[in-house]
């Protein structure tokens, strides 16, 4: 692995964790904590993406001990983003947002069993509250749990994909050309393939 890709991984992980400051400023119910994972995947392939997801979870665990079981979700996100990048779905917002919504469903389906088995569905205040709402609406426990995760993930992943698409398009070509998959992800043919 080149030193540049090695540097990209912790930088992307730190992006995932620092974006909460921007989210707080606009008061939206988002996490964006997989942004770095999606970005690293789109720029440098699935290996970099998975590594970013694992590092993000490890560092996040130091601040909130309940995060580490969700490393599985980070890995699923990296693999999904890899397929999306190969399919050219970061080419425009029109393709990226639906792809992000799809990831939202997948991420919710992944985090539900973890949340259910490990936490009894009580992860983070917002999700627990929507889960309680699901229970109040008469859903069975597992169904309410999925409902809670789904509400949290659905919009979050769509915004994540939209943000990564914006970044890829705003990146100057001279910078983008230094990452092996960046140009291909936005649909510009050329230097594809690991450097």
């Amino acid at each position: 692995m080149s030193v540049r890709l090695l540097v990209l991984i912790p930088a992307a992980a730190a992006i995932s964790l620092a974006l909460s400051a921007a989210v707080d400023a606009v008061a939206l119910p988002l996490f964006l904590d997989t942004t770095g994972t999606v970005l690293a995947t789109a720029l440098a392939g699935p290996g970099a993406g998975i590594a970013t997801g694992v590092v993000t979870s490890a560092v996040n665990t130091l601040r909130n001990p309940t995060f580490w079981p969700f490393v599985v979700v980070q890995i699923i996100v990296a693999l999904y983003a890899w397929l999306a990048a190969r399919a050219g779905l970061f080419r425009s917002l029109k393709t990226a947002v639906p792809a992000g919504l799809g990831l939202g469903v997948l991420a919710a389906a992944t985090s539900t069993p973890i949340s259910y088995v490990v936490f009894g569905c009580t992860t983070t205040g917002g999700i627990a509250l929507t889960t309680a709402l699901g229970r109040a609406l008469g859903l069975p426990p597992l169904g309410a749990c999925f409902f809670g995760s789904f509400v949290a993930d659905f919009g979050d992943k769509a915004v994540t994909f939209a943000l990564v698409t914006s970044v890829l398009h705003a990146l100057p070509r001279r910078t983008a050309a230094r990452f092996p998959w960046a140009l291909r992800a936005v649909g510009i043919a050329g230097s594809a393939g690991p450097a």
């Binding site: 030193v3 540049r4 090695l6 606009v26 970044v167 990146l171």
Partner: peptide
């Protein structure tokens, strides 16, 4: 709000990506 979020997040992410190269050079 989403547009505002973009205005906040984009400069942050781009600045980090620009620095990746310099950091790699420094480590090398």
């Amino acid at each position: 709000r989403l547009r505002a979020l973009r205005a906040l997040a984009l400069p942050l992410v781009l600045s980090v990506l620009h620095e990746v190269d310099e950091r790699a050079l420094a480590l090398e």
